[in-house]
Design a protein around this nucleic acid. Structure first.
Lengths: 200, 200
DNA sequence: CTTGCATTTTACCGAACGGTCAACTAGCAT
DNA sequence: ATGCTAGTTGACCGTTCGGTAAAATGCAAG
């Protein structure tokens, strides 16, 4: 059972950086197995399909973020709008450190996968959508708190939260196109200027 | 020569919707050739590699946009900020009509390709970056004109233009994750709230 | 000691991948 | 008519793709 868990997590550990740095279609099961020191038959003992593997990888990334930067950024002790700054900063420093190690900016794996597979696989699309929904909720709660505290003028928190998430993904996309995390540094702070007014 | 041009453009015509609706890696030369009624050897007479094909596809999409919606939107006769509205509307209607025909929101092919290939192919990345650069310039000129006309308060036109482009791409990404062009309709107009102030 | 189950190994499947090659055809200029 | 060239054909290259099946192994409970 311990060895079993180990095999499974070794597979995921081998898959994670590959899906992040390349693409879903460009990473093969065989390569992952070789890197994890696992036979292909063993792989299919733990994962019914490649899709199931990438779902597990998505979950791991999501957990990593949720317990790492996201938990730090959305610290209730921080003033609400500073949490958003913190999150953007975290995205910047993370991408920057990835580039230092890897030589390239890899961007957001959720965004990457969304654009690659969401027209071809509704199950994966739903999985990624759920990730985005949770992220949006975090923004929304923060905005509501900021409005309640009088830090910002009242607005449509739901739509503004979605707009901010969109902006963050878009900034990371442009940064990736330039292979330059500084784009996040330059453009990121403008996220707080985004506003969707409450409908009348 | 006419037949030659025809073969080449039939290949591109077959490739365009496939790269747009799926992904670079998921579309094979063979499938494109079958759809275009062309032998594989003939394909490689016109395109040295798959990459060269996708570059031609990118050019066609770029031209299509430049002479279509973009030309309409950035009409100097329109008040500057209305041009931005027009462009967002155009993106919305385009995606909506694609969904009506195809059943799915396909998003922006430049964004799609950027996230898929830009860590793996610097030549493609450069090509896509050039597309984004031109788009950014359009935004920038428009913003400068709006500032000059007194429509909006002075700002950093260069960075704000980049921020707007990022936002547009991000909105299309989120819309694709929901397979719903209405996301563009709801979030799009907030693009005009984005501002990067001039550095002191 | 045996049964049963989870795990692992190995060999294999048909299909598709991007790309190559030599032979052939057709049209045009000399 | 001949030669050159752009275009076309169809067979072929080795490799990889995601996935399967059966046999072997290890291990724990009865």
């Amino acid at each position: 059972m311990n060895a079993a868990t180990d095999t499974r997590s070794r597979i995921i550990a081998a898959a994670k950086p590959r899906f992040h740095s390349r693409s879903y279609a460009n990473v093969g099961i065989q390569e992952i197995c070789e890197s994890a020191g696992v036979q292909k038959g063993s792989f299919y003992h733990f994962f019914p399909s490649k899709r199931d593997l990438v779902m597990a990888v998505i979950d791991e990334f999501a957990d990593e973020w949720a317990h790492g930067f996201v938990a730090e950024a959305f610290d209730p002790a921080l003033p609400p709008m500073e949490r958003i700054d913190y999150l953007v900063d975290a995205a910047y420093f993370w991408q920057k450190s990835i580039k230092q190690v890897h030589g390239r900016m890899l961007g957001c794996i959720f965004g990457n996968l969304t654009l690659e597979v969401s027209t071809q696989d509704d199950i994966l699309r739903a999985k990624l959508l759920a990730i985005f929904s949770r992220a949006k909720s975090r923004f929304k709660e923060t905005l509501e708190e900021a409005v309640a505290a009088g830090t910002i003028a009242p607005l449509d928190a739901d739509l503004t939260a979605e707009a901010m998430l969109a902006y963050l993904e878009g900034v990371i996309l442009l940064a990736k196109s330039q292979n330059d995390p500084e784009v996040i540094y330059r453009l990121g702070p403008a996220i707080k200027t985004l506003r969707v007014e409450k409908a009348a």
